[in-house]
């Protein structure tokens, strides 16, 4: 038994969710290998070789791997699979993993398993369905199990103490049917949403994009990330990458502050594993209060500036 973890990175640094995927891979038992494919990613390979529990780091470098296009990475993973015969192939359930692994699975003619939250045994996994309203236990009888891992459900692997060997994997002839042009990444000095210890999220109650400044001010006092409900994204207040919920990001911070969010089930799916949930809403009947540890029935336009002021003292 052996597992391949497809590493996500930007050629400079490993994306944290890869560490959660490595923990899931270690739980399966057997050897853990990581594949790093990029344009110039030796630094990432070095970083990975120190991660505790990784046995082999496979590295493939080629200009074609720019932008991690699935059309280019899939043949590489298939060639790697042919060489090493892994029993499991996984990646984090991020935009990268969700885009790539189903393509790999279809090419292997196996049914993949998305966004697992628990491993019962090497062939039995738990995942959520219906926006987290129900848990589904999935027994996978495929020869190769292909799955993505929910980051918040597995601890990150230790980044020190490992001593993996490195191995070059030959890059393949580019498929050349797709081209990566550019990325427009949201620039922020705040912590990254899925790994922040504190998250302040806003919903339709904020009434406008400009009013999100109230949340940014509060977040900055707490070194928090800012998130949003789908309603706030739909209304155009904030960009999609802030969306927390079933079809957005899954977060599980120490503290989650939901401001002006009613608490639709689709939103709760994305934040219910937070350690402490605080809700501020003027509607005492809002469903968010059912999952909150602390609820404040108040006008957010008054309460939030008061909190920010209190934290400034």
């Amino acid at each position: 038994q052996s597992t391949l973890v497809v590493a996500e990175h930007n050629n400079d640094k490993l994306t944290p969710i890869t560490l959660n995927a490595i923990t899931a891979a270690k739980k399966l038992g057997g050897d853990v290998s990581c594949l790093v494919a990029g344009t110039d990613c030796t630094k990432v390979a070095q970083e990975l070789s120190k991660v505790l529990g990784v046995k082999t780091v496979l590295i493939a470098q080629n200009a074609a791997y720019k932008g991690s296009l699935p059309e280019e990475l899939t043949p590489l993973i298939l060639a790697t699979q042919k060489q090493f015969n892994f029993t499991h192939i996984c990646a984090g359930a991020s935009a990268f993993g969700k885009n790539l692994l189903p393509r790999v699975a279809a090419k292997l003619d196996v049914a993949p398993i998305s966004d697992i939250v628990e491993i019962k045994s090497p062939d039995t996994f738990i995942r959520t369905i219906y926006a987290g309203n129900a848990l589904s236990t999935v027994k996978c009888n495929e020869n190769v199990k292909v799955f993505t891992v929910r980051g918040t459900s597995f601890q990150p692997a230790e980044v020190e103490g490992g001593s993996a060997t490195s191995e070059e994997v030959a890059a393949l002839v580019p498929a050349g049917i797709s081209e990566w042009l550019e990325a427009a990444l949201t620039k922020s000095d705040r912590p990254e949403l899925t790994s922040a210890k504190v998250v302040v999220s806003g919903g339709r109650g904020l009434k406008s994009g400009d009013n999100f400044k109230l949340l940014y001010d509060l977040a900055d006092k707490m070194n928090a990330a800012v998130g949003a409900s789908r309603a706030a994204v739909d209304a155009g207040y904030v960009p999609n990458d802030l969306q927390v919920g079933q079809t957005g990001k899954i977060v599980a911070p120490e503290l989650y502050i939901a401001v002006g969010i009613s608490g639709a089930i689709q939103h709760l799916a994305g934040m219910k594993d937070s350690k402490v949930i605080v809700a501020i809403n003027k509607d005492p009947e809002a469903p968010i209060f059912q999952v909150a540890d602390y609820g404040l029935v108040a006008d957010l336009f008054k309460a939030v500036p008061e909190m920010t002021a209190a934290l400034s003292k």
């Binding site: 196996v110 309203n133 848990l135 999935v138 999952v291 909150a292 609820g295 404040l296 108040a298």
Partner: peptide
């Protein structure tokens, strides 16, 4: 069913209910 069998489904509502039973402190 070769790939996946949906064996059991358990509701998360139970989990949430127990969470809110320990008492949301509403101010």
């Amino acid at each position: 069913c070769r790939g996946t069998e949906w064996d059991t489904v358990g509701s998360l509502y139970e989990q949430w209910r127990s969470r809110s039973e320990h008492g949301a402190l509403v101010f």
